[in-house]
């Protein structure tokens, strides 16, 4: 009986083995970026950006009744740019800033989504802005608002790595078949 159990274990493709796949190891690094609060706070499913991260304590909905609006740039009379300018405010607790501050489209949800869910979204042209993975990589490398996530200014924890490293990692992941984890 004990021998049969050992054979069964040997034949069973365990999740530990799957996670050692090089493509999944690359994805894990990308997931750490996409799920980081600097990135995920503005990739929300509902109308509200979030305030979360190591320096915020518990995740909070962005105050002031700030909402997505018809295009992700806020509502008439209170757009994102009413407060978020092209650069960070230098004043303590002042609003961060970058060109074109806005929420990601509603179908690009990362906040509180699993690794597998984010991975599937990144690969799906219907939910990634109609992009190939090469185009996604270039967007990550070159977009000014995305770049802010790695240099958010004093007092804010940056996303892991850099724009260039994330670009390279996404290219490697794509070349390895762009596998997604389960769940």
């Amino acid at each position: 009986m004990r021998r049969l159990f050992a054979i069964a274990l040997f034949l069973m493709p365990g999740p530990a083995f799957a996670q050692d796949e090089p493509g999944l190891i690359e994805w894990e690094g990308l997931y750490r970026v996409f799920s980081h609060p600097r990135c995920a706070n503005c990739h929300t499913e509902d109308d509200h950006p979030r305030w979360s991260g190591a320096h915020y304590g518990e995740a909070r909905i962005h105050p002031f009744n700030v909402r997505r609006g018809p295009d992700g740039f806020g509502n008439p009379g209170m757009t994102c740019r009413t407060c978020h300018q092209e650069t960070n405010s230098p004043v303590l607790h002042g609003p961060p800033g970058s060109p074109d501050w806005h929420l990601a489209p509603q179908e690009m949800v990362w906040f509180e989504k699993s690794s597998g869910e984010i991975c599937a979204q990144i690969k799906d042209p219907a939910r990634n802005g109609g992009k190939t993975l090469d185009e996604v990589a270039v967007h990550l490398r070159d977009d000014a608002l995305v770049a802010w996530g790695w240099e958010p200014g004093p007092g804010r924890e940056p996303a892991p790595g850099s724009a260039e490293e994330t670009y390279e990692a996404l290219k490697r992941w794509a070349e390895l078949g762009a596998p997604c984890p389960q769940g």
Binding site: V66, G69, N75, P76, G77, M78, C83
Partner: peptide
């Protein structure tokens, strides 16, 4: 200027700040 006849919800979304 943008919503000449705003609803209560429109007003709340603008004036919350």
């Amino acid at each position: 200027d943008e919503i000449p006849n705003p609803s209560d919800a429109d007003i709340d979304r603008t004036m919350g700040g």
